[in-house]
Design a protein around this nucleic acid. Structure first.
Length: 110
DNA sequence: GTCCTGACGAGTA
DNA sequence: GTACTCGCCAGGA
């Protein structure tokens, strides 16, 4: 049950469930978890302890721009990763959400 | 317990 | 379209 998990646990669960070549927004994640502040999502990812399990690079802002504080190589690295996975970009700073957005089946995280 | 900080979002100018 | 401000919640000291 997702409700029995800590906020961070939920965030990690959701982010780690994002499939390859897909991205999701902080807004979406926070909405799924039930918190009103997307900032918590970023905060959680910042201090995440399982970088290899948490594809933080697949989490972007609501407008498709990349996170400025990506802690595992920087935004540039993040962009490269996404590109290599097949995520389409509108330009150098924004991902094509309408094409690569991950419509999470939410609550299935349990 | 309190205070400060933080990977954001939406609204306004 | 860009820049700035305010609000929001949770974690860590």
């Amino acid at each position: 049950m997702i409700r029995l998990m800590n906020r961070f646990e939920k965030i990690y669960a959701i982010v780690s469930s994002i499939p390859k070549s897909k991205v999701i927004t902080y807004k979406q994640v926070s909405d799924i978890i039930g918190i009103k502040n997307p900032r918590i999502v970023g905060f959680a990812l910042h201090k995440n302890k399982n970088p290899k399990k948490i594809p933080c690079h697949r989490v972007v802002h609501s407008d498709g721009t990349l996170a400025k504080g990506y802690a595992f190589g920087g935004p540039l690295k993040q962009k490269e990763k996404l590109k290599k996975e097949g995520v389409s970009f509108l330009n150098d700073k924004k991902v094509d959400l309408k094409n690569s957005f991950y419509s999470i089946l939410s609550k299935s995280i349990s």
